[in-house]
Amino acid sequence: MRQFLLYLAAAVVYIGIGIYNQNAIYSYFEGAAFLVLFVVGLPALVKRLRQ
């Protein structure tokens, strides 16, 4: 469930960015990089900061 919510949050943020700046949704590579950063990088960063 936590994973699903994280992906959902990523989707909402990415849609917002995409509406504001269409270059952010130019290709699959931007989407993949954003998703990896959001669902893997961000939780890892938060975990490290908490420690």
Binding site: Y7, A11, Y14, Y28, A32, V36, V40
Partner: peptide, 24 residues
């Protein structure tokens, strides 16, 4: 977790850009 994100990325990208472009 990274592999899963890469595997799901095309779905994520397809669904979000459909919604983003439609709203735009």
């Amino acid at each position: 977790a990274t592999m899963l994100a890469l595997y799901r990325a095309a779905f994520f990208y397809g669904a979000t850009r459909l919604i983003a472009w439609s709203i735009w």
